[in-house]
């Protein structure tokens, strides 16, 4: 090995060590910055708080996506000389056990959402904005993109549905079912009071799979559906603010299916 070779070997060794150090350093830096997934909103159904699907219940309606169209309100009505004065509606002071009375309005306004945690902030909305379904429930003044607290979101529906099903299930399991009966589905309409008790006798809306040989068991299947619910009534722990919103639990449908 002459000097030139020795020098080359030395440079090579030094270069490799430097490269290794560089890579190791890069690795250390990388582990210091793990990829964090985007935060996901999770609702634990076991907790029957289910005030709403929104992680941060907001008393104000969601921010409006676009400006409401200004135009005639009713088909037959002549165009007003000037844009109609906006119907002023204050946010409902919350929490409120009953829906706030709505201001008189010729157009069908959306229900006043009873809020869970009122902040006292006032929201305003243009009266004609209600006519635009896209703008429904959305407030141009709002910066919040959280769903309003007291509307029945898909998640709230799932939560309340599970809460109801879980309370009815023990009574459903107790029902003695005719041996010969197939999987009849009985759809009953239930109207509840705010305290979770039945506001009226459950009403059978319709039955599925109750024809042919199953027909003889149809009446019994309806009995069982009503008895199962009645036995476990009143329901408890359902959120008051979602009582009488559209598709709230004041009035809902129970699909009762006999076991296989």
């Amino acid at each position: 090995m002459d000097r030139v070779e020795a020098a080359g070997l030395g440079i090579s060794v030094v270069g490799h060590v430097a490269l290794l150090a560089l890579l190791s350093l890069a690795l250390v830096t990388a582990t210091n910055n793990p990829v964090t997934p985007a935060a996901m909103e999770v609702s634990f159904v076991d907790e029957v708080g289910l005030a709403s699907a929104s992680p941060q219940p907001s008393p104000e309606p969601a921010a409006q996506a676009r400006a409401p169209e200004i135009g005639p309100v009713e088909d037959a009505a002549p165009a007003p000389p000037s844009p109609a004065p906006p119907v002023q509606r204050d946010a409902v002071p919350a929490p409120s056990p009953i829906p706030a009375p709505r201001p008189p309005s010729r157009v069908q306004a959306p229900p006043a959402p009873p809020a869970t945690a009122g902040t006292g902030r006032t929201t305003r909305r243009p009266g004609l904005g209600d006519l635009d379904p896209r703008a429904f429930g959305r407030d141009p003044a709002s910066q919040s993109n959280n769903p309003p607290a007291a509307t029945m979101s898909a998640q709230a529906r799932a939560d309340i549905g599970q809460a109801i099903a879980r309370q009815v299930q023990p009574c459903a399991d107790r029902q003695a079912v005719p041996y010969g009966a197939g999987q009849i589905v009985t759809q009953i309409n239930l109207r509840l009071n705010r305290d979770g008790s039945l506001a009226g006798r459950p009403r059978v809306i319709r039955q599925l799979n109750a024809d042919g040989d199953n027909a003889r068991y149809a009446q019994r299947a309806a009995d069982i559906a009503i008895a199962a619910f009645s036995e476990c009534s009143p329901l408890r722990g359902l959120p008051q603010e979602l009582y009488d919103v559209p598709r709230g639990w004041s009035n809902f449908t129970l699909n009762y299916r006999l076991p296989t």
């Binding site: 029945m152 079912v177 709230g248 809902f252 129970l254």
Partner: peptide, 9 residues
């Protein structure tokens, strides 16, 4: 709101 329950013995 629609709730589904299956039950009975």
């Amino acid at each position: 709101l629609v709730v589904d329950v299956t039950g009975g013995r």
